[in-house]
Design a protein around this nucleic acid. Structure first.
Lengths: 338, 338
DNA sequence: TTTAGCACTCACGTAACGAGAGTGCTAAAA
DNA sequence: TTTTAGCACTCTCGTTACGTGAGTGCTAAA
């Protein structure tokens, strides 16, 4: 569809626009790149590219800017081999070295490093908790009538919850309840347990065992998790970007909605191995029409354990950002395998 | 210094400016309030108020706007009795009812409700963890070489940490270690324990007891807390306010720095019973020169347990915001005492 | 097929201008 | 002595007009 020369011009235009944030004109291209063509020829090529939907004009007598489709072309044909800056790696290592055992700290640090070096919004989130595997349940009496439930999962973070017990339970009862729960549920994912609980509740009625009733009740309450963590860093730098002088409010609103951001990360990252890129309107949400998202997943024990990425303007330094996200994901995966 | 009439005019001007966000002129005052004075007289009074530093003029032929000192006067003489809106209370109750046992959820919910109803930035933070009292320490083996340490504090939230053990410890050893730690440290605040640990470490050397050495080591690692939670809600509405069309970036930067926000909350709230108000330049930080802060503390078991408040533009509806913060603090205090 | 030339378009900065809001000051009125 | 009417003055803001510069599309020549 596009001959090689046309592609090169498109590439040059996208690159120029990313660098300058100004509509790029034919003359500029001939000055900056050595195509050995006159502005007039470049103009013809540009007209073609516009016809195909790779470029657009803000107004008649301005230069061209890439459309989302133009960026997509650019990203797809981008050589993925660019070097990561040493400073980035260094800052990654120094910041995360101390936190090898603390997943939350690790993720927050990663999001922050990512944002500081890219100047975009840094994101990191562990996978939806429903898919994590329960390792052990521990119960204590706590301040009289309460029970502290601690859920140890395979993925490092511990969830904890304090729930109200009807009456004070003896340590013995508590131990028997937790023994029962461990025997029954450990090794399953949270989602599976939620399912099992429903079955259990009908069986339990037949059994009429007060201990089990109590146990199931405790477990059910403990599994009503908060929505899950997500780390978003670099807000202030991000909204300071010239690209959204207006619309700040909208965009800030979308980003502040952590619930939504989580879902986005999960959807985009799911299944794909390397970093995946979502450009502007490829994003299903209208608030993010001018924003691009780069996400990669990180792993633990060979399984996908969460996502990490950046959000920037569509006019974003993709090649740099992609490598950074890739590197970050690799680092976290490494850190998690000790 | 100011006679009653002058005070009333000042009040009227501050109020008008809060409502309209436009410099208020003499004519406007005579039309809106019934002082039965001519614009000329009001102008004279305004000139006096400006001389005393309560008002300022953006430029020669504009109306007056309050200075920080003007706002301060307004706030100090504000009747604190205005009614809270029912909608606010209602939303508070419905949102927090479910979270009575979960301090973090409670605080986040409070910050969010506060921000949604005030349209300013909602803040909530538990007191610096150093001053919370340790209730119990529990230890488990976790994934081979690690130990999960769970700290139960008096104030509801549990801190947890996973630390690396040199070698795998038997359940018996682990129990003996935790028994020792509980006997030694429970009932003290985290700060006190940190102090005790230093002493312990010298004694421990003399004793040469490998168990105690291990215990002290574990405890020390577990007490190296993350900086502490703070909940900040309503960012997007907040930066959408017309007051900071420029300077958004700066302000966003200051707000994003949670560490700094925490310190601010702690300093301002400390010691004072009701809501305290910090207006514009009264704030030590230059990024917050145009911002006002209203903070109150909430209590648990009679002791101050954290702060809650809002940040808004200096041109803020103080009376409404103060009552809201007050109400929020009362609600949380109540929720925490069951 | 490429290029030079040229007329045309559009954003942007500047200047001029009038309207409007508000002031300070002075002198008269209360 | 205090308040008020009157008035000249100041400053912002929106509008209009205009010139400049960057960039285009088209045509015709190379």
């Amino acid at each position: 569809m596009l001959n090689e020369r046309t592609e090169k011009v498109l590439f040059a235009i996208v690159e120029s626009f990313i660098n300058t944030n100004e509509p790029v004109g034919s003359r500029f291209i001939t000055k900056t790149y050595s195509f050995n063509l006159s502005p007039a020829t470049i103009r013809n090529i540009m007209a073609d590219l516009e016809e195909f939907g790779f470029l657009a004009q803000p107004h008649t007598s301005a230069g061209r800017i890439p459309t989302d489709r133009g960026y997509r072309f650019y990203v797809d044909f981008l050589s993925r081999s660019s070097e990561v800056e040493d400073a980035f790696i260094e800052s990654f290592i120094t910041r995360l070295e101390a936190k090898r055992e603390d997943l939350n700290g690790l993720l927050e640090g990663a999001a922050r490093t990512l944002s500081e070096h890219s100047r975009y919004l840094g994101l990191a989130a562990p996978m939806k908790s429903g898919r994590t595997t329960l390792n052990r349940i521990e119960l204590f009496n706590y301040r009289g009538n309460y029970i502290a439930v601690v859920l140890l999962t395979d993925e490092g973070p511990i969830k904890h919850k304090i729930i109200r017990a009807g009456q004070k339970l003896t340590p013995g009862t508590l131990r028997r309840i937790s023994d029962y729960l461990n025997q029954e549920f450990s090794g399953y994912t949270v989602d599976e347990i939620r399912l099992k609980l429903v079955k259990e509740m009908s069986r339990e009625k037949a059994l009429c065992d007060i201990l089990i009733t109590k146990a199931v009740e405790i477990c059910r309450e403990a599994l009503s998790f908060p929505p899950g963590e997500i780390y978003v860093c670099g807000f202030s730098d991000f909204i300071g970007l010239p690209d959204f002088s207006s619309r700040i409010r909208e965009i800030a609103g979308a980003i502040e909605d952590k619930h939504f951001m989580l879902k986005l990360l999960e959807q985009v990252g799911a299944g794909i191995e390397g970093p995946s890129v979502l450009i502007g309107s490829e994003n299903p949400v209208k608030e993010m029409k001018d924003l691009s998202l780069i996400v990669s997943t990180y792993k633990q024990d060979g399984k996908v354990a969460g996502s990490i990425g950046v959000i920037g303007p569509t006019r974003m330094d993709y090649s740099r950002a992609i490598v950074m996200v890739q590197t970050a994901a690799r680092f976290i995966t490494e850190a998690l395998s000790q």
